[in-house]
Design a protein around this nucleic acid. Structure first.
Length: 446
RNA sequence: GUGAUUGUAGCUCAGCUGGUUAGAGCGCCGGAUUGUGGUUCCGGAGGUCGCGGGUUCGAACCCCGUCAUUCACCCCA
């Protein structure tokens, strides 16, 4: 086994893979831009304090920290037990939302609000890899800040629907509202245990109702509290029914009631653009969400979510700019690619050379190169064989690099200013004059 | 961080209850009258059996450790 391999959780992308990823990115970009989002790129690493504490305790653990430069150890107070901040002061970005919030806070005075940006860049997490899960992966985010209108949510869901419809992947956009969860916690008397409640509830589809109940108990909820939460486990049926149920159950809670109203309004409009589902068990880990939350699930592929997002009312507050509400969505590029491949919905765009120009002898190479230049000028992807190897070898090479045509351009062709074009698929051969290469039908016999 | 799994040629793998110079297919390189490929035939190169210890007359095989892979948990895209 070779020791030459990429680092854990990372991968190389071959030509074919790069092209497939570009295809997906292209679809997302075009959707983002049609909805008026402008691109933004931020650095791959940020100051450590910019990232720490934004993703919860678990998230902090998964941040890739970058060792300080220089002889930093000499300033460490206790070298046997250095503090993390003494060893590292920078970290690779963990997601695109926090760097975006940092950017908005920094430029709050000059950005036209509401401000819409999209961002397609890799992020890094020091997680253990598994299926569809990497330590370096791409996120494709679209966020809008500076507007509390629910129309933003409607548009973002429409973007999900449009993008996945274009890609040909069947998905459902699951919707929930942090206020709904907060309302449940309130009426069940959970106090500040909202996170414990939601993290367990989120696993309903995985571990079942009994699994959730026992996790609640493990997390220290009383039997009375568990009993009070019971309606959260049984909420099902139509979206409208569920909303009605929830409205009654949470009528004593102000946040709960408001959340139900918002969901009712959103669901009516978001349901027009595609498949959506109300899922009161949807929690999502990132604890900066405050309003509607989304998660996109491929319906025909066993895969974690292929996208997620939600509203966060005060993300820039921690960077000193309070009162800016934002809402955003994220597409998981790597997982989308995996899903499309599994569903055979991935096109295979051509990129390799179309023509290989054979080199017969060193004396004839100048003419071969002139022909190659003509071909390239005509927009044909062309490779000239670099040495006068055996013809069989040159043909083999043409086959292997996927070229459909071999161009034979030696002394006899030069005498007539022509080139022989042989189709490797059909075996047909055409004698074409150099001046007519631009009109040649390269796709014949493909 | 936890649990399990796997690690033999470039790739996919075989290798019996431990027993000589560790095999196959594919791939790679070369050749079969050197301006026309794919098929076929012939020949060739290529392995510290992940690494380090231990048991044994003898270890790819058994034991311990370690590293790496994959899958799952936690968490998440």
């Amino acid at each position: 086994m070779s020791q030459a391999r990429p680092a854990k959780g990372t991968r190389d992308f071959s030509a074919a893979e790069v092209l497939r990823r570009r295809y997906v990115v292209g679809v997302l970009q075009s959707v983002f831009e049609r909805y008026g989002f402008a691109p933004l790129e931020t650095p791959s690493f940020e100051n450590l304090e910019t990232l720490m504490g934004k993703y919860g305790e678990e998230g902090d653990r998964l941040i890739f920290k970058i060792l300080r430069s220089g002889d930093f150890m000499k300033s460490v107070a206790n070298p046997t037990q250095p503090k993390a901040s003494e060893l590292a002061d920078k970290a690779l970005r963990y997601d695109l939302t926090v760097p975006f919030a940092r950017y908005v806070a920094q430029n709050a005075g000059v950005l036209a609000m509401p401000f819409r940006r999209y961002q397609i860049q890799p992020v890094w997490r020091a997680d253990n890899p598994q299926k569809g899960r990497f330590r370096e992966f791409y996120q494709c985010d679209a966020d809008v800040v500076g507007s509390t209108s629910l129309w933003q949510e409607v548009e973002l869901v429409a973007m999900y629907h449009e993008a996945f419809a274009t890609l040909g992947l069947d998905v459902v956009v699951r919707v929930n509202h942090r206020g709904l969860l907060a309302g449940i916690a309130e009426v069940a008397g959970l106090g500040d245990r909202l996170i414990d409640f939601t993290v367990a509830l989120d696993k309903l589809d995985k571990v079942g109702a009994e699994g959730v109940r026992s996790e609640w108990r493990d997390r220290g909820f009383t039997e009375a509290q568990c009993a009070a939460l019971e309606p959260a486990l049984t909420a099902s049926g139509g979206i409208q029914d569920t909303l009605t149920q929830m409205g009654k159950w949470l009528s004593a809670s102000e946040v709960g009631t408001k959340a139900v109203a918002e969901l009712t309004w959103l669901v009516e409009r978001a349901g027009r653009t595609g498949n959506i589902a109300l899922d009161v068990t949807l929690a999502r880990g990132l604890n900066y969400y405050t309003g509607c939350i989304f998660e996109v699930q491929a319906t025909d592929v066993a895969m974690g979510s292929v996208g997620g997002g939600g509203r966060y009312d005060n993300l820039t507050g921690i960077f000193g700019v309070p009162g800016l509400s934002g809402v955003g969505i994220s597409f998981g590029l790597d997982r989308i690619v995996l899903c499309l491949e599994e569903r055979n919905r991935m096109p295979n765009p051509a990129s390799g050379p179309q023509v290989l120009v054979v080199q017969f002898s060193e004396a004839e190479a100048d003419y071969a190169f002139a022909v190659a230049t003509d071909l390239r000028a005509a927009g044909i992807r062309t490779v000239m064989y670099p040495e006068p190897a055996k013809i069989k070898k040159q043909f083999d090479h043409a086959e292997r690099i996927g070229a459909q045509w071999v161009a034979l351009a030696g002394a006899s062709e030069q005498a007539q200013d022509t080139v022989q074009l042989k189709n490797l698929h059909t075996g047909e051969q055409h004698l074409v004059s150099r001046s007519a290469l631009g009109e040649f039908r390269w796709n014949q016999g493909a």
